[in-house]
């Protein structure tokens, strides 16, 4: 049986200074471009040595530090020798400065890695991304882990997990209490938080489908350019009509002998609520025109009323300002 999802009710208390106390859960959105880049970087590591590969994740975060949007990523070289780890700090800083020139409003959100398990080295890397300049500080850093090998070291489909480092023990500021010590540790509880992969917008999807279709037609006809495919501009309409028709046929076949199962009752409810009442003005042009004009009248009336209210407010504000300046 597959693992059950972890629980995530509220963002845990983090050590980051600028992180307000959260009263809600965290959300991470990973853009597909960023994810492809991360997977590409991870896939290029030498297997089966399973050398550690890490990188920086960039994007936006909400002011309260509960929502993250990962838009891009780059690799940061690191060398792991026994228990010691050396991160190429200069490479990270140079890449980040270059990136900032093109994307001034995006920041370091955290880091990604491909560790089989979270260990003290993970804590060290997380600390690197949580403190100091060109890191996620003063906001909390997030960690994305790509696990792509099973227990027998065989490559499997990558599984993505995202974490935030909850604080444990004394805060890093060391200001707690009257007796302080200089030996502050870098301990974290890596708490799983849910993430979602964001695909492109509807327009992007349409454009991508169009390009794919054009390439396919171009390949089939042996044309070297894809521009010829766009010439038959009714092809899209035809394909969409065929798709709708095929869906209806499939649906009709499914409901030929419906069962009394909950799923079929839900389907009937959905279809009945949306299909069974067909306004007759859809087939009567004169009546449709009448309704369209009536709708326009309604819209104009709402616009008129909105304008009147707005002007009343402005007038009232001017009168108040005038009265205040007169009697001041």
């Amino acid at each position: 049986m597959a693992d059950t999802p972890s629980m995530h009710l509220v963002r845990p208390t983090v050590a980051a200074l600028a992180a307000l106390l959260a009263s809600g859960p965290c959300k991470i959105k990973v853009h597909n471009v960023a994810l492809f880049k991360i997977l590409e970087i991870v896939a290029k590591q030498v297997h089966p040595d399973h050398k550690r590969v890490i990188g920086t994740m960039l994007g936006y975060r909400s002011e309260d530090g509960t929502e993250f949007e990962i838009r891009d990523a780059f690799m940061v070289p690191c060398t792991e020798t026994g228990e010691s780890l050396a991160i190429d700090d200069q490479a990270h800083k140079t890449f980040y400065k270059l990136y900032k020139k093109a994307h001034p409003k995006e920041y370091v959100l955290g880091w990604f890695g491909s560790g089989k398990q979270i260990d003290t080295t993970t804590g060290l890397i997380h600390d690197f991304y949580s403190k100091g300049a060109d890191s996620a500080a003063p906001y909390p850093a997030i960690h994305l882990n790509v696990d792509f090998v099973d227990d027998d070291q065989n490559v499997t489909a990558p599984s993505i997990s995202t974490y935030i480092g909850a604080a444990i023990g004394r805060p890093a500021s060391g200001k707690i209490g009257w007796k302080t010590s200089s030996s502050l540790n870098n301990s974290y509880i890596f708490t799983p938080i849910p993430h979602e992969i964001i695909t492109g917008s509807v327009t992007e999807k349409l454009a991508l489908n169009g390009l794919c279709e054009a390439v396919q037609i171009g390949t089939e006809s042996g044309a070297s350019s894809v521009s010829g495919a766009a010439a038959s501009d009714l092809s899209y309409l035809s394909s969409q009509l065929n798709a709708v028709s095929a869906t209806i046929t499939k649906l009709l076949h499914h409901i030929e002998s419906p069962s009394t199962s909950d799923a079929d009752v839900d389907l009937l409810r959905l279809l009945s609520n949306n299909l069974l009442t067909k306004p007759h003005f859809l087939t009567d042009v004169s009546e449709l025109k009448l309704h369209f004009m009536a709708h326009n009248q309604d819209v104009i009336m709402i616009e008129y009323l909105t304008k009147v209210v707005k002007e009343q407010i402005e007038l009232s504000a001017r009168l108040t300002a005038g009265a205040e300046s007169k009697y001041a």
Binding site: I118, G169, S181, S187, I189, T191
Partner: peptide
Amino acid sequence: MTSVIVVDNDLAGCLK
């Protein structure tokens, strides 16, 4: 996916 504790200290250090 479960929570993982990474503590950069031994138990005696945690007690202190």
